[in-house]
Simulated scan of single mutants.
Amino acid sequence: MPQLNPNPWFFIMLTSWLTFSFIIQPKLLSFTPYNPLSNKTPLPTKTTPWTWPWF
C-alpha cells in the first residue's frame, strides 16, 4: 500500500514546518499591530430601551 510509505511525504512535511518555524514565523511576529492594546478600562455604554409602538 503506497499510502503507508512515509518516504516522500514526511520529508516534505518536515521541510515545510521547519521553513515556517524558522523563516516565516519570526518575520510575521516582528510586525507591530496597528491598534495596540490599551490599559484603559472600557466605559460602560448606557443603553436606552427601545419603545415599540405596537405594545
Rank of each mutant, 00 (worst) to 15 (best):
P36Q: 06
T32I: 07
T19V: 09
N39C: 06
N5E: 04
T15W: 02
T47E: 10
T32W: 07
L4R: 08
P53K: 07
I24G: 00
W52C: 08
F22Y: 13
T47K: 10
T32A: 15
Q3V: 12
P44F: 01
I12P: 00
P53I: 01
L14Y: 11
P49L: 11
P33R: 13
T45L: 15
T15N: 08
T47F: 05
K27L: 15
S16L: 15
L14F: 14
F31C: 04
T47G: 02
I23D: 05
Q3K: 07
P36Y: 02
F10Q: 12
F10K: 11
N39D: 13
P26T: 01
N35S: 08
Q25D: 05
W52E: 06
F22P: 00
N7W: 09
T41P: 00
N35E: 05
T48E: 15
M1F: 10
Q25G: 01
Q3L: 13
N7D: 14
T19K: 03
L37K: 14
N35D: 04
I12V: 14
W9Q: 10
L28A: 08
L28H: 03
P26V: 01
P42I: 03
P53V: 03
N35H: 13
K40A: 15
F22S: 02
N7I: 11
P36C: 04
F11D: 10
Q3D: 12
T48S: 13
T48F: 07
L14R: 05
T15S: 15
P53Y: 03
Y34N: 09
L37R: 11
N7Q: 11
W50I: 15
I12C: 04
P6H: 03
S38F: 01
F22H: 02
S30D: 10
P8M: 02
P8I: 03
W54C: 05
W17H: 09
T47W: 06
L37N: 04
T51W: 01
N35V: 11
I23S: 08
M1A: 14
W50L: 15
